[in-house]
């Protein structure tokens, strides 16, 4: 197990280095930040001062060496716009995004698994077909537009929920959580639901396919032949088999949730790092974009590692073959 984790860590480290090069090279090509940062009537002296201040006058390889050196010290440069350290800027927005993504993930599992299970068990009835057809609509809904419709219905027409923003939060261990504040829940529910809708459909389809597959297996037949109740067969024999792929996929989808939060956060003005990324792209704030990418790549590597470990814990077949090798 330890060797397995170490090997995966090595792979992740390699991925990080590759991404660092890629990120730097590509970001270097983004527009000219000076055009954006300085007022249009700035004179030549002011321009040169700004270029020197931002280190843009040095050759590319120097900038890259500088970048890597600073990267190793956890310094990803100062934001052109905010003037503060870009990594801490991003990290400051991380909890809001993570909270949003995790709540959406849990929503997706809680809604998707039972619905998919029902659809799989009753695949020949109208209820099964209804769930599966609805899931295609959920699959197709453009995320941002669904958010807009939610705002129109619940914030503008019914005026039940605020149209955006994070609202009040409570602090635990120095980190702000919306979940700890009842008013925070009100602000969280729409963005989380919007982010979850696509994954709900995904989970429904996974659970549906898994259930139908399991129903054809001899072990389900044998379980019935043993005289087990259908609740035991569904709750233990089928559920345990379908949960393994679902948990794995959901874990991997956490990364895509964080990425998709870019859209949801833009619609609901949720102060997470996705919103910061979009703002930074608009303002050509290069260091913040780099910091975001490096952080996201690190997160993805971490998530993949955790999912691999989780998978091997869940599935006895994998557990054994790892132990033997």
């Amino acid at each position: 197990m330890l060797a397995f984790i170490l090997r995966r860590l090595g792979q992740s480290a390699f991925l990080l280095i590759a991404m660092a090069v890629l990120v730097f090279v590509s970001i270097f090509a983004i527009g000219d930040p000076i055009e954006v940062l300085l007022p249009a009537d700035a004179d030549q002296n002011e321009r040169e001062a700004a270029i020197r201040h931002l280190g843009l006058d040095q050759p590319l390889w120097m900038q890259f060496a500088h970048f890597v050196w600073n990267l190793l010290h956890g310094d990803l440069g100062k934001s052109f716009v905010f003037g503060s350290d870009s990594l801490s800027l991003i990290l400051g927005r991380l909890p809001a995004t993570l909270e949003l993504a995790l709540v959406a993930l849990i929503l997706a599992a809680l809604i998707g698994i039972p619905l998919g299970l029902i659809a799989g068990l009753k695949s020949q009835t109208w209820i099964g077909r209804l769930i599966m057809t609805t899931s295609i609509v959920g699959f197709s809904l453009p995320n941002f537009w669904f958010g807009i419709v939610m705002i129109l219905v619940f914030a503008v027409q019914l005026q039940w929920l605020p149209s955006g923003g994070r609202g009040p939060t409570d602090t635990l261990f120095g980190i702000e959580f919306s979940l700890l504040n009842p008013q925070g829940w009100v602000n969280l529910i729409m963005p989380a639901a919007t982010l979850a809708i696509y994954k709900v459909s995904l989970v429904i389809r996974l659970a549906y396919a898994g259930t139908r597959e399991a129903l054809l297996q001899d072990y389900v037949r044998f379980a019935r032949a043993k005289g087990l109740s259908s609740s035991r067969i569904i709750g233990v024999h089928i559920l345990k088999n379908i949960l393994i792929p679902i948990v794995t996929v959901l874990g991997l989808e956490l990364g895509s949730m964080i990425a998709f939060a870019v859209v949801t956060e833009s619609v609901f003005a949720w102060p997470g790092m996705g919103k910061l990324l979009i703002d930074s792209i608009a303002r050509l704030d290069r260091p913040v974009i780099v910091a975001y990418l490096m952080l996201v790549v690190t997160l993805f590597a971490l998530i993949n590692l955790c999912v691999d470990i989780l998978y091997s814990v869940l599935d006895p077949r994998v557990r054994l073959s790892e132990g033997q090798s």
Partner: peptide, 26 residues
Amino acid sequence: YILSGKYWVSIYPGLLLLLTIVSINL
């Protein structure tokens, strides 16, 4: 314009978008 209740400018294109995507997915 959503917050001022002028829904049609973004709801109708969205419905068309949804219809297109749902149909292809079906």
